[in-house]
Design a protein around this nucleic acid. Structure first.
Lengths: 152, 152
DNA sequence: CTTGTTGCAAATTCTTTGCATGACA
DNA sequence: TGTCATGCAAAGAATTTGCAACAAG
């Protein structure tokens, strides 16, 4: 499943953005991109190991943290409190609808919330207002799978 | 600030809702109500100790978790990943703007987000869509304190 | 009395950090 | 070659759990 090197978005830029260009960082960024959704540090570490890239867990954490700090990754927390990271190709601010079953994430139109958040920011008297919006649900696939199981 | 026993919501109902009526649970619920905002389990445990109520930390965790499960408490996570609980008097669904400095929380008009979330839920094909919305910022008081420090 | 609760401490889980070795530029 | 990055293992922090003593109904 790791073919298609053609349209590789060259994570190099992302790596150099946070420091030196190393094997490990490249591998982490690469794996994060291929994850195509939110992943935990430990999960990513496991995938890397499975792929043959022996990267230390600490390095995975450090790289992901640096990426998030550099604005190249989004960061949320799952119900268990684990940090989940997602690669962010562009500088845009997005919100996602995440399937609680399979982890599939789909970007949603967040315009209305942004406007709402801005309004709150302006009318509240609070400064430096930031918002976290997380939508979760069961995607169609997982949903139908459930339905089937229920009526078994 | 803890007078006005008249309209006291009698936490008894909340306690019995989650099991037996004990000293400890009453103390925890009471302290949570008096907190009037989001508090961490450990912080609540400290307050209880300061109030002379020696309740075990495990019991605080267990009680808060049970309350949240019973729908009598809201649960969010702060930036550090710590669970923060807030007493929920009614069955209504609310969102808050929380000060990152002092913890002050203020309910905000969440109508627009609710509508937005509903729309997403209906157009996405996802089932059982739930949302988490957290607004944080620096409240006026903390803000001016900052400003003063900055130009010191 | 019987069963649910508590408290303590040990166990878990996720994440961070110190420091010597090794790799980039 | 001089830093910066890595890896390992130990440290931290928040939360959960096992189990014997205890209290509520």
């Amino acid at each position: 499943m790791e073919s298609d090197r053609q349209h590789a978005p060259a994570p190099l830029a992302d790596v150099t953005l946070i420091g030196r260009l190393t094997h490990q960082r490249t591998a982490v960024v690469d794996a994060l991109i291929r994850a195509e959704g939110f992943v935990g540090a430990q999960a990513l570490h496991n995938r890397l190991a499975a792929d043959g890239s022996a990267v230390g867990l600490s390095t995975v954490y450090r790289t992901l943290t640096a990426l998030a700090a550099a604005g190249r990754a989004d960061l949320v927390r799952d119900a268990a409190g684990e940090r989940l990271f997602r690669y962010r190709p562009g500088p845009d601010h997005r919100h996602y609808l995440i399937c609680t079953e399979c982890g599939l994430s789909r970007p949603v139109d967040s315009g209305p919330v942004e406007d709402w958040a801005d309004t709150i920011a302006q009318t509240s008297g609070f400064a430096n207002v930031r918002h976290t919006v997380e939508l979760s649900g069961v995607c169609p696939d997982c949903g139908s799978r459930h339905a089937a199981a229920e009526r078994r």
